[in-house]
Each structure stands twice: as structure tokens, then as C-alpha cells.
Amino acid sequence: MFHAKNPRRLTFALIAFVLIIIVGLITMSKPVHIYKSNSAEILKSILLKEGELTPEKAMLYAKENNPLFVFVDIRDPYEYVKGHVPNAINISLTELLSDETLKTFDKYTRDKVTIVIYANTQTEANGPWMLLKQLGYSDIKVLLGGYEYYSKVPKENEKVPENPEYYVESQSMILQK
């Protein structure tokens, strides 16, 4: 059996070893944002269309100032000033992942408020919507067709067309020929 000439050397080595591990654990960098759902889950929610809100419903909720829905305008502030959904809050796209924004979103999630994201087109809001959904905000929706179709919603007494234009993924007439 090997015996150290200086038994204290082993104790020092031991203490150093434990210290290194503790320091390593403390300083381990923790990522700020982590994915909380994988791609299979996000694809499932896309296919179930659970994150879509039609402009008619959006208009209804916005008009009655429904406390269960909050509209988030992710366009630039100057576009927001020109016209927006009533009672919408403006968080421009560059601020989307900032601490302040995520704190706001956390608060809405705690209060069980549905967040509805919109931009001029649905495509502009689609990426941020998918990203927030993957970051674990489950109660989040995207406005179908974006603001450009929201402003074209027929009034209450008008008839809703059978195939509304805001389903932008439906085939246009030219292609159907």
C-alpha cells in the first residue's frame, strides 16, 4: 500500500478537488432562454390550428375589451401609432426576447390571459409566435391574416364570405384552374 510521505498533501489535494467542483457548479452558465417543447409538439399544435384566431373573433374581443385576451402588436412603434387593434400593447420585434417583455408575458400567463400576436401579415407574426410557443408560453395565439385583413373585416350586419381571404394558405382562383 502506498503511503504519502506527507499525509497532509492528500488532504490539500482533496480540498482543492472539492473546491474546483463547487466553483464549477456555481459558475456553470445557465442559458437564459431554453426550449420547453420539441418540434413534434409545436408541429402538432400547428396542425390542430389551436393557435389561430380569426379576425372576426379578434374584433369582438377587442371591442368588448375582453380581460382574457391581450393583443400584442409586434410592428414598429410608428406603424402602431398609425392604426392598431383597440387596447393592443406595442412590443416591437427587436424587444421580443428582452427580460422586460418576457416578464410581461410571464405575468399574463400566470393570470391565464391569452396573448394574441399580430403584425402586418401573418407571416411576420408567425416566426415570433412559434418561437414563444417553443419557449413554453402555451396560451399564445396568432391573428389569422395579420392586421391587413383585420382592417377589412366585414361589419356585423354584412355576410361573412364562405372562404374568407384571411385563410391565406387556401389556393387562389388562378391556381385552381
Binding site: L43, I46, M130, L131, E169, S170, S172
Partner: peptide, 13 residues
């Protein structure tokens, strides 16, 4: 895709 929403979803994934 027919518009660019589905194509964008595929892009993100």
C-alpha cells in the same frame, strides 16, 4: 406553399 405561412413554419422548424 400556397401563401408563405406554411413555408415559414417549415423554415422555423
Amino acid at each position: 406553399s400556397n401563401s408563405d405561412v406554411i413555408a415559414d413554419q417549415v423554415w422555423v422548424i
